[in-house]
Design a protein around this nucleic acid. Structure first.
Lengths: 206, 206
DNA sequence: ATACCTATCGAACGATCGTTAGGTTACCGG
DNA sequence: CCGGTAACCTAACGATCGTTCGATAGGTAT
């Protein structure tokens, strides 16, 4: 199984990691523009000026969150897909990984989707490039399945976007103490998606 | 077919509608907290103070956008569902309407989802109540289909959330001049979703 | 002891925030 | 021609914004 926890090995993190974690929580809850540097500092029991020892600006904090999250997401996806064989199993692994990531690392995932618009143009370009790579993996999986006669997908680009929207939505409502555990949710989502792309499904006109 | 255009009949709108339209665009692009009242006024070629003749506060502008959008959304959905017969046709109509709404009124739909967190607690409560009603319609459609033996859905609540996430995602990427027209997208989404809930789909274990 | 580096602090900068008070214009019914 | 009202204006309020400056405490190496 791929790693889902953040990359910090030790119990208490480096100062910059503490900042990023607190910022992720606040950006998730109130948004980037809705969170002041003073509020972030107060949560960390620091003075405002101290933050600027670790990060040159508020914008760089946001970028660091998104950049790390996208790296982990893309890296984990490639691992998960590489560990599976066959088009259907690969798609199952990809969907499962995506859902688990969005459940376990809900705040980071949510911020990474909701605060794209708060990025500086240069930062946005870099983040979007990684997100496109991520989407390309899913398109590749669908295309492979279609070529292999396992899937029936009329429009690969559209279907990939639909699948990702659906799975990413988990980050909007998932709650740790909720009715369903991440693994259970992932299992359901895998079934829903595999059904919808399976060759043996019903045709376009009933 | 249900009405998808905003309720303003005349070519040039009332002042408050002009404000709401401009605010929707800005809130969609930069977010609520990322949009200043002065920016909104400049776009409208008004002075800042003039806005306060039409709305008592910035917060009320946001609420008006979300409240109207949710009303239109819920009203249109009920119309669309009522015009169809049978569980599958009703679900098709609901999905189609939802996708068309999120394509045609992309900005309002996007703001209604992304700026929930910027609402005052009291306003949030009212908006969430309407959103829950909306989701209940979809749950009801799925439940009816399961009872009627048309659908096979192991978890209605989860599936409804998944379907709505998927369709709502259209508002994130839809572009008016894009490759696919709203009707084409809606058609694809209907097929994807109907396939995934159809009784005759593959079982949970291949 | 001295020099240095890391991490923090108090205090303040100019800019911008949402909002308000009070005045001005244009039109409309009588 | 007049009173009233709708729609807008200029100007400013106190608060908060992101950021910077210079100082300081504690640890480590020389």
């Amino acid at each position: 199984m791929a790693t889902l926890a953040p990359a910090t090995p030790k119990g208490d993190a480096v100062a910059s990691d503490r900042i990023l974690r607190a910022a992720t929580g606040l950006f998730c809850e109130r948004g980037y523009h809705g969170t002041s540097v003073r509020t972030l500092a107060r949560v960390l029991r620091l003075e405002t000026a101290s933050l600027y020892y670790h990060f040159p600006s508020k914008q760089e904090i946001l970028f660091a969150i998104l950049d790390r999250t996208l790296d982990d997401l893309l890296d984990g996806l490639r691992r998960a897909v590489a560990a599976a064989d066959g088009a259907e199993q690969r798609l199952r692994a990809a969907v499962r990984y995506h859902v688990l990531f969005h459940a376990h690392r809900r705040q980071e995932a949510f911020v990474s989707h909701s605060e794209l618009r708060s990025l500086t143009p240069g930062h946005l370009r870099r983040v979007v490039a990684k997100r496109d790579q991520y989407e390309d993996v899913f398109r590749g999986l669908l295309t492979a399945g279609v070529r292999g006669g396992v899937f029936q997908v009329p429009d690969v680009k559209l279907t990939a976007a639909a699948i990702l929207s659906m799975c990413t939505g988990v980050a909007l409502w998932f709650s740790e103490g909720g009715r369903l555990a991440p693994e259970a949710i992932a299992g359901r989502y895998v079934e829903i998606i595999v059904r919808s792309v399976d060759r043996r499904g019903k045709g376009p006109r009933s």
